[in-house]
Design a protein around this nucleic acid. Structure first.
Lengths: 221, 221
DNA sequence: ATTAAATTTGACCAGGGTGGTCTACTGTTG
DNA sequence: CAACAGTAGACCACCCTGGTCAAATTTAAT
């Protein structure tokens, strides 16, 4: 198989010690996440990573290629460390969303920058990406969509309301809690936080949701 | 009263035709909203506003002063066209939030850029602002907070759940709908949209919320 | 020990964008 | 005509950009 120059150059990066790869990757993820593709600075990246300017272009042929590498890396990370772990067979919406929230939080604690960066390239779109990658991004979106909307048993909801609407109300409530929690926790390193009290609080909310939106077993209220 | 040079220069801008002021203001608001203070470009602003470079510095002494002017303008706009119109006496949470949502939507339709820009300076903080203005921003935040949280009669909620939690659940649901609607409507000019069908849909959601989270009058379900 | 190859650095480059100035020009008013 | 407010955009010095490259250093092979 004929190796292109690009492959050889990238291979240099991949044969680095994991810890060094990690340092460089995180510096780059953070820079792109904060500034977007155009305004991200390779100078700041090398400074943050603690390497000489030359090395970045020894490992990657260009800023563009570095960006593509990070997108690929992030897609794979999200797929493997998050989406693949979801049990798509769970028909109970609240259970499903709880699972989604928990797994996402765990993956985020593992590598927060990946998620911040993914928000950027999901929003910047295909602008700086080859078609193959843009397609993979689309796949991820679809995959996430299915995990959230497919195979939910809406007959669990109370019968006197449009189940489609109940579905959304529950989703918004859970998203809202998650967002508010993340906002409350800004500044702290997610990995260092003991989430136990928050999960407890979260389940208190879920209990109310079930009580309010699900069909009660004995008709009691 | 001794007028400073700055006041004279700003006065030049303020004695312009309203329509021209508007053009320049909107161009600047959009630029700062999109790029933040540091990365905003005065060159792009003058191009978008259709004026020569010199004029901007004929109306404003510096980029910094232009920014401060826009902050002041936006604060005033939000106060007068939005917050002042809220009836803080309404004790029913859903009524209150509905009002908030409707008034905000109306103000946003009137000048979307102001709201996008305000998101930026609320987040960038006091970095580029004199203390007086930073204080005014804080006031606005407080004011918004009070309008959302103060004087709500939580005894309207069903008795079998923590009212504090019910409060948040309702808020998240309404915020969720609003956000989703805004996302659905991206690209269209808010001012041109007929909101009637959306308000109808919105009220269907509200009915479910009331039915699920409020104390029922006759104990029926 | 010697040589060859692989890493690593940072000074350096041309190009482009920055906020801000200034000269020259145009209208308006008396 | 003169005085002056308004207007345009060429121009300035400066800074930062992505990327290169010659030289220095480390590693591996002989």
């Amino acid at each position: 198989m004929g190796e292109k120059e690009v492959d050889i150059i990238i291979a240099r990066f991949e044969s680095l010690e994991e810890s060094k790869q990690h340092t460089i990757r995180q510096a780059a993820l953070e820079e792109f996440a904060q500034h977007g593709y155009e305004k991200a600075s390779t100078n700041r990246i090398v400074k943050a990573a603690g390497i000489g300017k030359g090395m970045l272009f020894y490992y990657f042929t260009s800023k563009q290629e570095l960006y593509e590498y990070l997108v690929k890396y992030s897609l794979e990370f999200i797929q493997i460390r998050y989406l693949d772990k979801v049990d798509a067979g769970e028909p109970d919406l609240i259970e499903r969303l709880t699972q989604l929230a928990r797994l996402k939080m765990e993956a985020q604690a593992e590598n927060e920058e990946v998620f911040k960066f993914s928000a950027v390239f999901l929003q910047e779109g295909e602008a700086y990406l080859p078609k193959g990658l843009a397609a993979k991004i689309e796949e991820l979106k679809q995959s996430g969509y299915r995990l959230m909307y497919e195979g939910i048993d809406k007959s669990l909801f109370r019968k006197d309301a449009d189940p489609e609407k109940v579905f959304h109300l529950i989703r918004w409530a859970i998203d809202g809690y998650q967002q508010e929690l993340l906002a409350r926790l800004t500044g702290q390193k997610l990995a260092d936080i003991d989430f136990a009290p928050y999960w407890e609080e979260f389940h208190a909310y879920l209990a109310i949701l079930k009580n309010s939106f699900y069909e009660t077993e004995e008709g009691l209220r």
